[in-house]
């Protein structure tokens, strides 16, 4: 590790917004769901940060119910809670077109820059779930491009990075 990397390793002050703290204390829609239509996971068990969404999807392709579980920091828990509130009752198509991590971060009252990835992970997991839902139905609509969205890519990159780091530092898993 070079000095630049070492410097970044230091601890950072994390002035979370009141909203993040409130949702961290009382997250909405938290917990496992029995018989969800679709579930998706983002994050890497090797490094910790992990988020799971459970969704119940109605016939009209609308999210009837959504819950989450998070093995992440306060920002991760809060943004997951925000995402569930934002997309409950929305159609999958509208979610796909409108949900971005920037909107989630705004809704959170801003996130410390190092914590953007926690929000990205949450949005990435939701988009993954939607893609998976249509793949399961074997009828992917045209508004879902083959290429991954920004958040899906970021989630994947984070998973790969975590794996690489774990290898580089020679951590037995």
């Amino acid at each position: 590790m070079d000095l630049q990397e070492l410097n970044k390793m230091s601890r950072i002050p994390l002035p979370y917004s009141q909203k993040v703290i409130d949702l961290f204390r009382n997250p909405k829609n938290q917990g496992k769901m029995e018989n969800p239509t679709v579930t998706s996971v983002a994050g890497n068990p090797a490094c910790g940060d992990m988020i799971t969404f459970y969704m119940k999807i109605k016939d009209q392709k609308i999210i009837e119910k959504i819950t989450f579980e998070s093995y992440g920091c306060a920002a991760n828990i809060a943004t997951a809670s925000i995402v569930t509130e934002m997309i409950k009752g929305m159609s999958l198509e509208n979610i796909w077109k409108e949900l971005t991590w920037k909107k989630v971060a705004e809704e959170a009252g801003g996130l410390p820059s190092v914590k953007s990835h926690c929000g990205i992970l949450a949005v990435g997991a939701v988009k993954r779930a939607i893609r998976k839902f249509y793949q399961n139905e074997s009828s992917v609509p045209s508004w879902i491009p083959q290429d991954l969205t920004y958040e899906e890519k970021q989630a994947m990159e984070e998973e790969e990075l975590a794996e690489k780091l774990a290898k580089k530092l020679n951590v037995p898993e």
Binding site: E5, N7, K8, M9, S10, R11, I12, L14, C47, G48, D49, G72, C73, N76, V114, H117, L165, L169
Partner: peptide, 8 residues
């Protein structure tokens, strides 16, 4: 890792 800058 969540409390560090490089998330390590």
């Amino acid at each position: 890792a969540c409390s560090r800058r490089l998330l390590q």
